[in-house]
Simulated assay, not measured.
Amino acid sequence: MPPDPRPTLQDLRTRIRQIETGGGPPQRVLPFGLPVIDHHLPGGGLPLGAVHEVSDGDVGPSHIAAATLFVAGIVARASGPVLWCLRMPDLYAPALAQVGLEPDRVIYGEAPDERMLPLLIEEGLRHRSLAVVVGELSRLPMVASRRLQIAAEQSGVTAVLLRRRPQSATAEFSQPTASLTRWRVTALPSTSPLVTGPVPGIGRPRWRVELVRCRSGKVGEWELEGCDATGRLCLPAQMAHRPAARDGQAGTGPSYAERRVG
């Protein structure tokens, strides 16, 4: 039986992306290494040289920590130096190192106020020697997001915007932006305690990861175990390798890397 000559949906997405980028080669991507996620993304991974947003799924330190570590895991799997733009020097470097982002790769850029952050991020995106620019923003107007997307496309440097959620501005996260993807990460009760690991007796973190926007892809939602020492996510062990644990066995302690402020 001859093969079906009709193009697949992924072929059509690739052609559309080539048209959007002027007919050049397919965009470089950074796979998560999990087919359940990568199949939702154009090209089978997170597009590089583009803007992506990550926000916490709820108000609270554990959710902020989960979103921060999700971003750090992405950055850890990219090669090269990283510029992390923030308002306050409250990142906990040992926690970032536990998900694979070593301190010697990170350059910190502190802005005097929220209005200067987009300018600092945009300036960082123009430096082609950087692999990723991370920007912590509570507000992201459409015009500013378009400027960042253009800068990322021109330099090939990826921007990951960590949208820290003020309690008084939750509506801000429903506003449209020019980012290619938008993620939401919520902390869940951790897995059963580990016998060995970075902190014995504390289970691996578990997150609900939602892809709520994906240009040329499709949205999705997954319950995953948090980033390991190489920045990689994985399916919960009872889902991937064995039957679900009996009720009451799952641990509820905090993640070993949830602490953000030293």
Rank of each mutant, 00 (worst) to 15 (best):
250 A>Y: 05
70 F>N: 07
33 G>K: 09
72 A>Q: 03
67 A>V: 05
222 W>V: 10
65 A>G: 13
125 L>F: 08
171 A>C: 06
180 L>W: 14
29 V>H: 00
115 R>L: 13
50 A>N: 05
181 T>P: 05
65 A>M: 07
131 A>M: 09
240 A>I: 03
106 V>I: 15
248 G>A: 10
54 V>E: 07
12 L>S: 14
73 G>T: 12
192 S>I: 14
213 R>S: 13
124 G>N: 05
171 A>K: 14
119 L>W: 10
232 R>T: 11
75 V>Y: 00
209 V>S: 03
256 Y>L: 09
125 L>R: 01
216 S>N: 14
5 P>S: 06
253 G>T: 07
180 L>C: 04
8 T>R: 14
95 A>C: 09
10 Q>N: 06
101 L>H: 11
102 E>V: 12
231 G>S: 07
138 S>H: 14
130 L>I: 10
201 G>M: 11
232 R>A: 14
234 C>A: 15
63 H>E: 11
191 T>K: 01
65 A>C: 02
169 A>I: 08
34 L>E: 01
241 H>M: 02
165 R>M: 09
172 E>W: 02
228 D>T: 04
24 G>T: 11
3 P>V: 12
253 G>Q: 15
223 E>Y: 02
257 A>H: 15
184 R>E: 15
70 F>K: 00
96 L>S: 07
246 R>D: 09
122 E>W: 02
67 A>W: 14
42 P>Q: 01
203 G>Q: 07
222 W>F: 04
139 R>L: 13
38 D>G: 09
40 H>L: 08
243 P>A: 06
6 R>K: 05
61 P>W: 06
212 V>G: 04
166 P>N: 11
14 T>K: 07
134 V>M: 04
3 P>L: 07
1 M>T: 13
152 A>R: 08
5 P>G: 01
58 D>I: 10
50 A>V: 06
63 H>Y: 03
65 A>Q: 03
122 E>C: 10
124 G>M: 00
60 G>A: 03
103 P>G: 08
261 V>F: 12
101 L>P: 04
90 D>R: 14
4 D>L: 11
149 Q>W: 02
254 P>V: 13
122 E>R: 06
110 E>K: 05
164 R>F: 01
161 L>W: 00
93 A>W: 09
191 T>F: 06
240 A>K: 06
158 T>C: 11
154 Q>P: 01
25 P>I: 07
147 R>E: 11
261 V>D: 13
101 L>M: 10
80 G>A: 12
222 W>C: 13
45 G>Q: 07
93 A>I: 13
111 A>L: 03
17 R>E: 15
46 L>Q: 10
178 A>C: 11
250 A>S: 10
81 P>T: 08
182 R>F: 03
256 Y>D: 04
208 R>T: 08
156 G>I: 02
179 S>I: 03
113 D>Y: 07
203 G>P: 09
84 W>R: 13
208 R>K: 11
196 T>K: 14
96 L>A: 03
53 E>R: 06
213 R>Y: 01
194 L>C: 15
186 T>M: 11
117 L>G: 00
177 T>D: 01
163 R>T: 09
182 R>T: 05
225 E>F: 11
26 P>G: 05
109 G>R: 09
66 A>H: 10
157 V>K: 13
